[in-house]
Simulated assay, not measured.
Amino acid sequence: MDRALSAPGKLFVSGEYAVLWGGVARVAAVAPRTEAYVRRREDARVHVCLEEGTLAGSVTPKGVRWAREVPQGFLFVARALDEALRAHGRASQGFDLAIAPSAVGPNGQKLGMGGSACATVLAAEGARYVLEERHDTLKLALLAHTLGQGGKGSGGDVAASFAGGVLRYRRYDVSPLVDASNGGRLGAALVESPSVDVWRLPVPRVAMAYAFTGESASTKVLIGQVEARLEEVGRRAFVARSDTVGQSVEEGLAGGDFRAFTEAVTAQHALLLELGPLETEAMRRVLSMASAYGCAGKLSGAGGGDGCILFAPDAEARAELCKGLEARGFHTLLLEPESGVRGETHVDARLRAWMDALV
């Protein structure tokens, strides 16, 4: 039994930080996609093949018994496999899982499009398939990714990679699942727990793009810094304002008055900057150019690097903006909403080769 899979990356459209504190985020699932390949074994061994190398172990009802300490680069995938086996809750055959590296920019830096969340979703869905389970992959991936981040993160990136499209999302409380996992009741808890608050929005009628600034940022570190500066009362006030602006952004995605939409996007960006120095000089240059081309934009994600999501009234204006940005050294991507995690008919040759090389 084997299966090829792929899942998209993500970009936040609105609601960054607010979603951590009970607010609503809008998140887009976007290319480039990441591919994976999973294959069941005849024995009880497990192998995870990544670009960094291979991690081996053996299956148990309480997770994988890894042969060595899990390296940082394998952390999210390993956690997803552990939780999938805990949800399964009984002896099973082993399997091998290979996941391609996430996309990088021209200089080899990560693009900041949710690579760890995408890998977590692929691992959770791949394990569910070979274990022949019917549990909720999204809930399990949210659990694994939250644990991998030490409790930080909203899960919006996980939801986008799983469900696809442009989503309205509210943070899911995984603490009951954590307790259930520790108590040997994860399979039942995945069935009994509330549904994830996620809704797919209509396909945007504005053209979207992404500009990478050439600087990568640590989401976990930035979240910690912001939360250390903002007390509970301030967080509640921020969430109320963010939700109001986010609703205007959502309405603007449907088309109509692009000027009003630009004002909403600009307001969302300005609101994020109230949290601290999240905007870099490169971001300022990108957004200044977007304005000069009659387009709109904002930082996407935690800030401090990575890039900006850009909006244009039509495809022609988007093409001109991206051409101008590329001429000034910025890496750009044209964006269209992508479908969520899915099976593929073709196996990435690299992934098959990694797996065939296993002893």
Rank of each mutant, 00 (worst) to 15 (best):
D2T: 12
S6Q: 15
K10R: 04
V13K: 00
E16L: 00
V19D: 05
W21E: 04
G22F: 06
G23P: 01
G23K: 01
V27C: 01
V30R: 15
R33V: 13
R40W: 04
A44E: 08
V46N: 06
H47M: 04
V48P: 08
V48S: 09
E52A: 13
G53W: 11
V59H: 08
F76K: 08
L85F: 03
D96V: 03
A98Y: 04
A100R: 08
P101V: 14
G108L: 14
K110L: 11
L111K: 01
S116I: 15
A144K: 10
H145G: 14
H145E: 15
S154K: 04
S154D: 02
V158K: 08
A160T: 02
A163L: 15
G164A: 15
G165C: 06
V166A: 01
R171S: 04
V174G: 02
V178G: 02
S181H: 03
N182D: 13
V191M: 03
S193P: 08
P194I: 09
V196A: 09
V203H: 12
V203T: 15
R205N: 12
M208V: 09
A209L: 06
A211L: 06
A217P: 10
S218H: 15
L222F: 15
I223A: 03
Q225K: 04
E227F: 06
V233F: 06
A240M: 09
G246P: 02
E250N: 07
G252M: 01
L253C: 06
A254L: 07
F258H: 02
R259W: 00
E263S: 04
T266N: 00
L271F: 09
G276D: 02
R284K: 11
L287I: 14
A290W: 00
S291V: 01
G294T: 11
G294Q: 12
G297F: 00
L299R: 00
A302W: 00
L310M: 02
P313L: 05
P313V: 03
C322P: 05
E326C: 04
R328I: 03
L334Q: 08
P337A: 10
R342S: 12
E344Y: 08
L351E: 09
R352Y: 09
W354M: 03
V359H: 09
